[in-house]
Nucleic acid binder design. Structure first.
Lengths: 197, 197
DNA sequence: TGCTTAAACGAACGGTCGTGCTAAATATGG
DNA sequence: CCATATTTAGCACGACCGTTCGTTTAAGCA
């Protein structure tokens, strides 16, 4: 059993790379088998269907996200400092080289928005979790007095998500070296509006 | 020649619908032929390659965008009023039923960001034009005194683009009936920060 | 070591993909 | 109405797709 899980991990790492660049639909069992040195049927046996592979790729990405963004971000003290830290790590995540195509949740959000099914359902859960991270951080910042008492944390998370999406476009489509600056300008404005008077 | 152009228009309309929902890569000559009642090769002859079809779909979408968003929006007087009008029409465009999958430029931005080639190049031009519409409108609002004199119009366009992307997610992925309210909250904050003191 | 179970393989399946090629059909201008 | 140019159809191609099946290899445990 251990051997199988280890192989599965290798496959998922390759699949995540591929999916981030080519999309979840762009995943190909054959290409993936070639990349990992497995046979097509051998690789396929690990998942049973392409859909299941796609779901596991998303789950895997969520696990990575938890480690690289959430765990890393919440080392900062509650309040605006933690929000900023989470944002830094979120942008790093979207810019990471280990996931060459950027945040797979973003590309998948636009790829699967009109394709009902279990993969889309899984994606929705993950993206809501992602939003929840920032909603929660905003709530804590309200409790600590950093943020206004009448702030809407969900709206705050929406705004943060928005600039992150635009960051992806600025960075990957426009290949703008100043993308990080652009997005921080936006974030500073969002933070300023969220702060207590 | 007239007959051919008319057929091509029919094809492009169907292709735009399909591409908005399934992505530009999800376009299929065979499926498109079935939908339009043409033969695969007959349809194919109009474009010569799938890439060319994709590019023409983007061009067609840009034409529609100009009519439905730009032409409609600039009937409002220069300044904040025009910015708001353009935004209304932009959101309508992203929510349109005639393009069932929403704004094809958004989905394509996340689909093609890592796929070099002429289609991506065409997309970049179109998205920059789109940004340019809002940059220009912001500039005019600065001239008219509605917006601050030290506003960065490109930054303003970036912010607007950001919330539009998030609108797409909120509407299509989350199917949130309150998406429009969410995005207007964001827009009001952006406008407030842009206004002259 | 021998047995059992898991893991990987190889070949084949029916489909669909984009793309050529050659004819037939149809529209257009004189 | 005819000649010409344009538009569409038909057929075939090689490639790749996800998936199934039976077999073989390899690992884990007694």
């Amino acid at each position: 059993m251990r051997k199988g899980d280890q192989t599965r991990d290798t496959i998922l790492a390759a699949a995540l790379s591929s999916a981030s660049a080519l999309g979840l639909e762009g995943l190909s069992i054959g290409k993936l088998a070639r990349e990992t040195g497995l046979s097509k049927s051998g690789l396929f046996a690990h998942f049973g269907s392409k859909e299941e592979l796609q779901i596991q790729v998303l789950d895997r990405a969520a696990e990575l996200f938890t480690n690289r963004v959430v765990r890393a971000g919440i080392t900062a003290p509650r309040g605006e400092a933690r929000v900023r830290s989470l944002l830094e790590h979120y942008l790093d995540w979207a810019d990471s080289r280990t996931i060459p195509g950027g945040c797979v949740f973003m590309s998948a959000s636009f790829e699967l928005d009109d394709r009902p099914g279990p993969v889309r359902d899984a994606l929705i859960d993950h993206v809501k979790d992602l939003r929840g991270v920032f909603r929660k951080a905003a709530s804590l910042a309200m409790e600590s007095g950093d943020f206004r008492a009448d702030l809407d944390p969900s709206q705050f998370a929406f705004d943060v998500h928005a600039v992150a999406l635009a960051y992806h476009v600025q960075l990957r489509l426009f290949e703008d070296p100043g993308a990080r600056q652009r997005v921080w300008n936006s974030i500073e404005r969002i933070l300023a509006a969220a702060r207590a008077a």
